[in-house]
Amino acid sequence: MSDHTHGHTGTHEAHDHHEHHQSFWSKYVFSTDHKMISKQFLVTAIVMALLAMFMSVIFRLQLGWPDHKFPILEKFIGSWGKGGKLDPNFYLALVTIHGTIMVFFVLTGGLSGTFSNLLIPLQVGARDMASGFLNMLSYWFFFASCMVMTAAAGYARLRIGNDVVVGEHGLVHRFSIARRN
């Protein structure tokens, strides 16, 4: 991975005279520049955090006022909030996805992705990351996983607890045996 443009020192004339014009795609989307990648991570993380925060508001409404109906829920989550009442299965999906998004997508991908990318090259005095391409790939894997997780949030059969897996077939039963022992 010894990319010749990212050496320790040297004059790097190539960089000074290399301000080629970039298209929108190569500048903002398929960028290998660590500063742009860190911005991509940050903005994606903020969007995901808002989504997870919105989920927490929905289930806090349920927990805080369990006997109350919130007709406005139907506007946001449709059939999962029929008659203003949160669907119990969807409640489990919501807390799970809230936790997953916050821990992995905001505080792992978002936090490390943003600040490691921004600060490591700038604070150690490097031109860029060791491999700009892998760095770009890292963001795109992150983006893809965000999309799949958002899709999973819409898939109400999904049920996984923080430390307990509960599936559709035999697992609930086995789980209860394990707990009694």
Partner: peptide
């Protein structure tokens, strides 16, 4: 649940690519 697992597999790919680079 299956989607959750697929998403985590992709996410871990991202975390490893990033981590080794850092």
């Amino acid at each position: 649940m299956t989607l959750w697992l697929v998403s985590m597999v992709l996410f871990i790919g991202s975390a490893l690519l990033g981590g080794i680079n850092y």
